[in-house]
Structure formats: C-alpha cells, structure tokens
C-alpha cells in the first residue's frame, strides 16, 4: 500500500516538476504516423517546454479546445477551423504542413478506379459498382472531406449496404477496409505508417481536392483564461519557423516523406 502511494506521489511530483508543459490537442495522423514523437523532443530540448499530445480526430480536438482543455490545436479541416475561429475560441491560424489524401482499396479494384486522378469520379464509380466503402463517420477532418467529396459527386451514400460507417479513427477504418476489401479515404501520413494493409493499395491520388493541410491554432485567452498562452505561442511559432519546418520535412518513413513543410505547399 505504501509503495503504491509513493508511486502515485511520484507521478504527481513528476507532473509538477516539469518547468512548463502544455496540452496539444492534435489530429490522430500527426501522432499515429510518428511525426510528433520525432519532432517535439527537439522543441522540448530547445525551450524546456514539455508538450503533452492528446491525439483525437479534428472534430474532437476542436471540441476539447473549445472547453478550454487544450493550449494549442493541430488539425486539418479548414472549414471546421474557420468555424472554431469564428466562434471566438481560436486566434492566429498558422499552416505548418501539408500532404495529400488518397483513396485506397483492394488490388482487385472492383470499381475500376485505379490510376484515376479524379476523386469525385472515382466515388461515382464506387457507388455505381456498389463496391464496399468504409467511412470514418467520426466528424474528423478526413471524414469531413469525404462527406464533401460525396456531395460533389451528387450522391448520398448514407444507409447504402455497401457503405460502412464505422465511427472510428483512421487506423480503425484502414483495419476494417483491409478486412472487408473495401475502398476508403485516408491521409498519406497514416497510410504510409500503417502496418496491416493486406490487399489494400493506393488507387486514386493527385486530385487537387485531395490536398491535406495541417494548421496550428492558438486558443483565445479571453475566452479561455486557463490557457497557457506564452508556451503555446512558442510552439506554434516553432512549428511554423525554420527549425520546426526543417524537422517536419526531414521526417521519413520507409524512404517516403510523410509531411511537407508549409513553405513548399501548392496553394490553389
């Protein structure tokens, strides 16, 4: 019993002993792909600021921050971000990285979309072939883009028997897609780092509408007085600055660069 209490006391002490620490609510892809685990120690070494990453989908990350429970958010849904800022929760959005989304699916490619550069036409083909499709359905940035693409295709897939809304994270969606031989929309970071692909291959890439932009947004201290403004600002500036940008660009998995620094983004 005493040992347990000592261990608990130590946990509290370790937490308190950090000179400064902030909570970063982030989308799952930057965490699950290993990017943050690689670059944040560099920031901590430079500044002494410890960063606690709570990886959630974009929708949940913004909701966490809207309750005042995060000091900074790192997300990837421009529309939801605009709403977050318009509601007065966020100030100062900075673009820090980009990559792209892709449609992945089974090698057998029942919808015949492999090699296409038109994501909307590909979704139309998926619907026409009634090929299994896995949707995140979790209000994340990827989910929001998928819903926009269906809208552009003029199709409402909800409730169709080939459309599986799994209500889970990117990894969960890829696991289900791999199991069902289904098509799904994924961000490149999670896809490249994902280890259970089975039959899944890249089918559609290179559509301008598949650009995936990652932003950090500082939290409005007037709305959320408990937020640690100064260390959060330093992290946001570091990520957007030369050292952070170089660290983002240098992150490579299996020879492929997962995230591109914002500096070379193809702005439409």
């Amino acid at each position: 019993m005493r040992a347990i209490l000592a261990a608990l006391a130590m946990l509290c002490w370790v937490g308190a002993a950090q000179a400064e620490s902030i909570v970063l609510a982030s989308t799952t892809s930057v965490e699950n792909s290993g990017l943050l685990a690689r670059i944040l120690p560099v920031f901590t070494a430079q500044t002494g600021i410890d960063v606690k990453v709570v990886a959630q989908g974009t929708g949940q990350a913004l909701a966490t921050a809207a309750r005042g429970d995060a000091d900074l958010v790192l997300v990837h849904d421009p529309e939801a971000e605009a709403g977050f800022i318009a509601a007065g929760h966020g100030i100062l959005r900075r673009e820090i990285a980009w990559n792209d989304f892709l449609l992945v699916g089974p090698k057998s490619d029942p919808a015949g979309i492999g090699g296409s550069k038109d994501a909307v036409a590909a979704l139309k083909a998926v619907a026409a072939a009634r090929a299994p499709f896995v949707s995140r359905g979790d209000n994340s940035g990827t989910d929001a883009l998928e819903k926009r693409l269906w809208k552009l295709a003029g199709i409402d897939p909800a409730g169709q028997d080939w459309y599986r809304d799994i209500g889970g994270g990117m990894g969960a969606a890829l696991n289900v897609a791999a199991g069902l031989d289904a098509v799904t929309l994924t961000d490149r970071g999670t896809w490249l780092a994902f280890a259970n692909r089975r039959n899944l291959v890249e089918l559609v890439r290179g559509d301008a509408r598949l650009l995936n932009r990652y932003d950090v947004i500082q939290i409005n201290p007037e709305k959320h007085p408990s937020v640690k403004v100064e260390p959060a600002r330093r992290l946001a500036e570091w990520l957007a600055g030369p050292v952070g940008q170089a660290a983002i660009g240098a992150y490579v998995v299996a020879g492929e660069q997962l995230f591109h620094p914002d500096a070379d983004a193809p702005h439409p």
């Binding site: 937490g15 909570v23 799952t28 699950n32 685990a37 606690k52 990453v53 709570v54 990886a55 889970g168 994270g169 990117m170 990894g171 969960a172 890829l174 696991n175 791999a178 780092a193 994902f194 280890a195 259970n196 692909r197």
Partner: peptide, 23 residues
C-alpha cells in the same frame, strides 16, 4: 488522453497499436 510517457497505459497502448495496424 493517452499522452505518450504521461498517461499512456497498457490498454490504451494496445488500442493505439491496433489502430496503427501493428497487430
């Protein structure tokens, strides 16, 4: 919050690794 090195425990690690496909 499943924060690495701070609040990440065995069960949440298992969920995370499953979601990464590291079955």
């Amino acid at each position: 919050g499943n924060i690495a090195g701070y609040t990440r425990v065995m069960t949440t690690t298992i969920v995370l690794e499953t979601s990464k496909g590291n079955l």
